[in-house]
């Protein structure tokens, strides 16, 4: 997925000299190819994110297409006000890339983990939020970000969980992508980003009468598809590597409570920081987001209704 990201960025920059990559002294080898191919379009703004995002607004104002890269703990978290006032207020076409979302930096602790980024961005007008699950969704999201007339927050989580799709996609903004469909549809899973693969795995093995939908778009979000899914489902289960407050679970619950109430289980990060460190899989387990914990929670929920 990171390879796809790098290649896509290089290809966009080579085809449009107005594309600039700004990084807050992050990225390491991720940008080796970019620096080699498009050195004039690469700007390391230093460890100075507020200025970097303000500058991106200035560059967009005078006709450039800045892609601003940082860790999602910093972009968007640290610069949320610059995103709001300098960029989103004027619908400037800046792509904000937050890498390492969720628990990717599992050994580094709370400062480098981001499970509140979607919530912080969602209430900012004009700002789209994309959350791709694999290289195919990523590529589409990158191109849609570039083509967007307004700002986009592109959330990149754990990137090495494998593909969930098998071919290039033609995504429609705001729409879910089917991963697993089923006629009886007792349970419908809606998930995003890093956890799509896990949900696909557990659905295939443990919940045959279920459908799985990936949600590469958190905002804008098409309400109707959720209403349609609700009509065909007994229960809805939303799973994400983000706080249960303000993320995809909230998006879906807002829609169903207003338009089509059915039972909903939101699985995500509870209202707390990581207590321990360890591998990424260890951290998922600590937060009850590993496959075994997910299966247990889902079964308990099903039995309780």
């Amino acid at each position: 997925m990171r390879d796809a990201f790098s290649k896509c960025l290089v290809s966009l920059a080579k085809s449009d000299a107005k594309v600039l990559l700004l990084t807050g002294d992050h990225g390491y080898s991720l940008f080796d190819e970019f620096r080699k191919e498009c050195p004039e379009q690469y700007i390391n703004a230093g460890i100075a994110e507020q200025n970097m995002v303000g500058m991106a607004a200035g560059l967009a104002r005078v006709g450039y297409r800045p892609f601003v890269y940082g860790l999602s703990a910093f972009i968007p978290l640290r610069v949320i006000e610059q995103i709001k006032i300098d960029i989103a207020h004027d619908k400037l076409p800046v792509v904000l890339i937050g890498d390492g979302a969720g628990f990717v930096y599992s050994h580094l602790g709370a400062s480098h983990q981001a499970t509140e980024d979607i919530a912080c961005c969602r209430a900012i007008p004009n700002l789209s939020i994309f959350s791709p699950a694999d290289r195919f969704e990523l590529e589409s999201c990158m191109i849609m970000s570039y083509e967007s007339k307004g700002p986009v927050y592109l959330r990149l989580g754990k990137a090495d969980r494998g593909d969930v799709h098998s071919k290039n996609l033609e995504l429609k903004i705001g729409n879910l992508v089917p991963i697993k469909t089923n006629k009886s549809n007792d349970i419908s899973f809606i998930t995003t980003g890093s956890l799509v693969k896990s949900v696909m795995n557990i659905a295939l093995e443990n919940f045959p009468n279920s459908s799985v939908w990936s949600s590469p778009f958190i905002k804008p979000f098409e309400n109707k598809q959720i209403v349609d899914i609700c009509k065909r489902s007994q229960v809805l289960i939303v799973i994400e590597e983000h706080s249960i407050y303000g993320g995809l679970g909230s998006v879906v619950s807002e829609i169903i409570s207003e338009f089509s109430p059915i039972r909903l289980l939101r699985i995500g990060v509870q209202d707390r920081f990581s207590q321990y460190c360890g591998t990424y899989d260890y951290l998922l387990e600590e937060h009850g987001l590993d496959e075994l914990s997910l299966i247990k929670k889902i079964k308990q929920f099903i039995e309780s209704i």
Partner: peptide, 9 residues
């Protein structure tokens, strides 16, 4: 900072 960006542009 926005001005710095415009100047850089």
């Amino acid at each position: 900072s926005v001005g710095v960006g415009m100047s850089l542009g």
